[in-house]
Write a protein that binds this DNA or RNA. Structure first.
Lengths: 206, 206
DNA sequence: TTCATAAGAGACGCAAGCGTTCCGTACGGA
DNA sequence: TCCGTACGGAACGCTTGCGTCTCTTATGAA
C-alpha cells in the first residue's frame, strides 16, 4: 500500500486528472488495498473513492454497487491462468505449483482473497470468481502433474485423485489461515517432502 | 435458527422475563446464529438483542462492546476439549478425530467460526479463542494418535510431524471452504484412506 | 408478602455510509 | 485551438447502528 501511495501522491498535484483505464486501475488498487486491510464488509465506496483520489460519482458511473465493483476488481487482479510446470520430476513440479500459490498468497491479492473467506457462504459472486480463476486451474494443473508422474512411474496410479491433488494446496491455505502471512519457502518445501511426496510413493505394498 | 425460534417464541408470551444464565444463553444463541448467517461485521447489537428478545441495555450491562460479546459467546459455545480417541488402530483414531471435526464444522458453531475466517488477520481475539479451544487441542490429539501408531508400528516414525498431523484437518477445512457445508462422512473416509493413511505407511523404502 | 434488582421496550442524539445530484474544469480527440 | 466528455469534489436527504437513558414491571430472595 505504501508502494502504491507514492505514485498516487505524485498525481496529487492539483489540477491533474486521470481518466479511462488509468483511473480504473487506480480504483482497483484501492479496492484490493481495502479488502486486504479492513475486509469486504468494512469496505466502503467512500473510502475506495478517497483512496483512489476520485469521487464517488466516478465509481457509480462504472459499477452499480459494491459487490460488482469488488468482483470486477478481483477479475482484473487475480493471477492469470498459467501452464502446468514440467520440470521433469514430480517434486519439481509440485514445488513449482505450490511456489506460485505461495507468491499469490503473500501478495496483496492474497490478503484480499483471505478477507473474503468469511463471505464465502453468503456471497457466491466472489467465490465463483476465485473458484474459476484460482482454485479450478490450480487443481487441474496439479492433477496433470500427478498424471505425468504416474506415467513416469514416480507416482502410484491410485494416488491420482482430486483429494490427493488438493492436499498440498490445502496445507498451504491452512498454514496461511492459522499462522498468517507470509508463507515461507521452507514451509512449502516441508509440505512437499513431508506430506505430498510420501503420499505418492509407488514403492509401498510391493 | 428455526429450531431456536420455537422455544424463543414460546417464551414470547408477554409478561414473562428471563434473567441471569437463562438470558445469557439466549443471547449466546443469538450471537452464534448471527455469526453463521450474516457474519461478524454485519452482526449488530440491535439485531442480537432483537433475536434474543431482550433489550440492548441488557447487552451493554454485560459486555462493553461487540467484540467482547462475540469472544465470550465463542468461549461458551466452542466444543469442549476432548480426550484423544484410542480405537486401537490409526485408521480408527484418525477417522474419529476428523469425525468430531466434521460434526463441529457442520454445526451452527462451525458456520460461526467460518464467518470469522475473514477477520482472522485483523481481530486477534477471535483467532486466539479458536486457536486455544479448537486448533491446538486437535493438533495435540492428532500428534498423540500418530505417536501411538508409530509405537505399534503402524506409522513410520518420520511421519510423526506437525505438518503430517495437520494434513487431514487441513483437507477437511479446505473442503468446507470450497464446497461449503455439509462435509459428508464419505468425504472424511476418503480423506483418511486416500491421503492420511498412504502418507503414514511404514512399508515403503524397505 | 415485601422490595431491591434487573429485564424489556423504546426514544435520544450522534456518526457513518448510502446513492444521487450538481457544478466547475482538466483532458484529449477533431 | 476548440469543445464535448467525464473527472473531482462537495452537498444533499436518507437509513442504519451506535451507546446512553428512562420508565415500567416481572422476578426471586429475604
Amino acid at each position: 500500500m505504501d508502494l502504491e501511495a507514492a505514485p498516487e501522491n505524485a498525481s496529487l498535484c492539483p489540477g491533474t486528472r486521470r481518466r479511462g483505464d488509468v483511473l480504473e486501475q487506480a480504483i482497483f488498487d484501492a479496492v484490493l488495498d481495502q479488502l486486504g486491510t479492513v475486509g469486504y464488509d468494512a469496505l466502503t465506496m467512500e473510502r475506495v473513492a478517497a483512496d483512489a483520489r476520485t469521487g464517488k460519482a466516478s465509481l457509480y458511473r462504472r459499477w452499480p454497487c459494491k459487490e460488482e465493483l469488488v468482483v470486477d476488481a478481483l477479475n482484473h487482479r487475480l493471477p492469470a491462468l498459467d501452464d502446468p510446470p514440467d520440470t521433469g520430476t514430480v517434486r519439481g513440479d509440485v514445488l513449482e505449483l505450490l511456489g506460485r500459490m505461495r507468491r499469490t498468497i503473500n501478495s496483496p491479492t492474497g490478503c484480499a482473497i483471505q478477507s473474503l473467506m468469511g463471505s464465502v457462504q453468503r456471497d457466491r459472486g466472489f467465490i465463483r470468481a476465485v473458484h474459476a480463476r484460482v482454485i479450478e486451474p490450480r487443481k487441474r494443473m496439479m492433477m496433470e502433474v500427478l498424471r505425468r508422474g504416474a506415467e513416469r512411474g514416480e507416482v502410484r496410479p491410485e494416488a491420482v485423485t482430486m483429494l490427493v491433488a488438493e492436499s498440498g494446496p490445502a496445507l498451504v491455505v491452512h498454514r496461511f489461515l492459522v499462522d498468517g502471512p507470509p508463507i515461507t519457502r521452507r514451509t512449502v518445501e516441508a509440505i512437499v517432502d513431508q506430506v505430498v511426496l510420501p503420499m505418492l510413493r509407488p514403492d509401498a505394498r510391493p
